[in-house]
């Protein structure tokens, strides 16, 4: 049975959550927020979407396989850990530069990695559980 209102809300909720998650991710260094929280938040958007539309729709929505998202996240964090070696610093040293008035540095890349990984992981787990339960399909 389709529920139009619920479907609209779920779609809207997804975009709002992703936008809010990105906001939390970027401000995380100075105010409450950060990669982990943002990841869960974005994933909760997808969770709602999955409940309404089913796991297939989520997989179609994110285009790539969640496994690759997890890998990408881990890779991003690793890259940010390795970058300092090329400056002759021990791995994981934070390197900061300025972009206009804003400080930008490897920790942001690291946090982005965490964000991507957490999102991918939760999506992966949800869709798999739903496939087992044959939810909405």
């Amino acid at each position: 049975m389709r529920n139009l209102i619920l479907e609209k809300i779920a779609t809207l909720f997804l975009y709002v959550m992703i936008g809010f998650a990105l906001f939390l991710l970027l401000r995380g260094h100075n105010s409450p927020g950060g990669g982990f929280i943002a990841g869960i938040l974005a994933a909760s958007g997808f969770l709602m979407y999955a409940i309404v539309f089913g796991s297939e729709a989520v997989l179609k929505k994110i285009v790539v396989n969640p496994r690759y998202i997890i890998g990408t996240g881990l890779l991003l964090s690793l890259i940010s850990a390795i970058i300092p070696i090329f400056w002759g610093l021990p791995p994981m040293t934070a390197i900061w530069g300025t972009l206009g008035k804003i400080h930008v540095g490897t920790p942001l890349l690291f946090d982005t990695g965490v964000f991507v990984l957490v999102t991918g992981m939760i999506i992966s787990i949800i869709t798999n559980i739903m496939d087992v339960l044959k939810w909405n399909s």
Partner: peptide, 16 residues
């Protein structure tokens, strides 16, 4: 750490 949110700085920098 260039950040005012200590928890996050610990997570992504001091204790990365």
């Amino acid at each position: 750490g260039h950040g005012r949110n200590i928890v996050n700085v610990i997570l992504v920098d001091f204790r990365a």
